[in-house]
Amino acid sequence: MHRGKGMKFVGDSRVPAERKPNIPKDYSEYPGKTEAFWPNFLLREWMVGAVFLIGFLVLTVAHPAPLETIADPTETGYVPLPDWYFLFLYQLLKYEFAAGPYTVMGAVVIPGVAFGALLLAPWLDGGKERRFYKRPIGTGLMILGVISIIFLTWESVDQHDWEAAEQQGQIQEDMEIDESAAGYEIYQTQDSCISCHGGDMMGGAAGPNIFESDYDTDEVIDIIQNGIGEMPGDQFEGSDEELETLAAFIANDGQDPDNGDGGDGGDDEDEDDGEENNDGEENEDAGDNEE
């Protein structure tokens, strides 16, 4: 083609004088370099996806999900922990300027401004440069966002009490508690006890299972009055009789002590005492007869 033949000059550019239809070439013209989307390429994608799915299923079977005990709405001492991708927002709510009366700031305002800035970054920095160091606004917002997320996530993981979380999530064996007992009814009126040990008395993040230690009635009363470890004393609200009833209920592992074996043991002791008295009287009678 001679120079300029079949071309038109538009400014400093050259464009074809005649437009030709844009018809894609057949795959046979590019052997080994391209393939049809259906079914070749799509079938390959499905095979790769099936391999990853099988691997994921094997992983879930080998390492089951760390399930916790059944949720108890009365357990106010439970410390929740969101998934890892929400930890930075969870940590944000721990600071004074984003918690308490300022919860709206930490839950709505600050995340809204941050995500809004990232969404508006293409319009805030409309430059055509593709090098990141020549787009200071967009690059700065992205770097600030990444550093903030990494820092807040690290702080949340570092400050979380993992030992307490493991204890509060342990699945306890089912234990039958006599909810008709007077001691259970007294316990349900003690908000300070429920906040730590839960409404089912099986423990929570702030307090252990009430029945896991083998204490007698007097020891339970002493613990309730004087406290033990991190448990404060003088938290019981009620009379001395109610305190004794509750302590006896706890010492009897959640069962009404009046329905236990105590009464039978007393009858046996009375029978033994009666037999001893009868033996004593018979011996005395035998001695009198000999005289």
Rank of each mutant, 00 (worst) to 15 (best):
M1C: 15
H2S: 15
R3C: 14
G6S: 13
G6N: 15
F9G: 10
A17W: 01
A17G: 08
E18V: 14
K20H: 15
P21Y: 06
P21L: 10
N22L: 14
N22W: 11
P24G: 02
P24W: 02
P24D: 00
D26G: 08
D26A: 11
Y27R: 02
S28R: 13
E29L: 13
K33N: 04
K33A: 07
T34N: 08
E35C: 11
P39M: 07
P39L: 09
N40M: 12
F41L: 10
L42Y: 12
L43I: 13
L43H: 09
R44S: 10
M47R: 13
M47A: 12
A50M: 04
V51D: 00
L57P: 07
V58F: 10
V58K: 06
L59V: 05
A62R: 04
H63G: 05
T69P: 03
D72N: 11
E75W: 03
G77W: 03
L81E: 03
F86N: 12
L92D: 00
L93K: 14
Y95C: 00
E96W: 14
G100C: 07
Y102S: 04
Y102C: 11
V104L: 11
M105H: 03
A107M: 12
G112H: 12
G112R: 13
L118R: 04
A121T: 03
A121P: 00
W123G: 02
E129Y: 04
E129S: 11
R130F: 00
Y133A: 07
K134W: 04
P136Y: 03
I137Y: 07
T139E: 00
V146E: 04
I147M: 14
S148F: 13
I149D: 03
Q159K: 15
A164K: 13
Q167S: 11
Q172G: 07
D174Y: 15
E176W: 12
A181D: 01
A181N: 01
E185F: 01
E185W: 06
I186Q: 02
D191Q: 15
D191A: 15
C196H: 01
C196T: 03
G199F: 00
D200Q: 08
M202R: 06
G203I: 01
G204R: 01
A206P: 08
G207R: 02
D214H: 13
Y215V: 07
E219L: 09
V220N: 03
V220H: 04
D222T: 07
I224C: 03
N226K: 12
G227C: 06
P232Q: 08
G233T: 06
D234K: 14
F236P: 01
E237R: 11
S239M: 01
D240T: 09
E242F: 05
L243F: 03
Q255S: 07
D256E: 11
P257G: 00
D258T: 08
N259I: 04
G262K: 02
G263H: 02
D273M: 15
N278Q: 07
D279W: 11
E281S: 10
E281W: 00
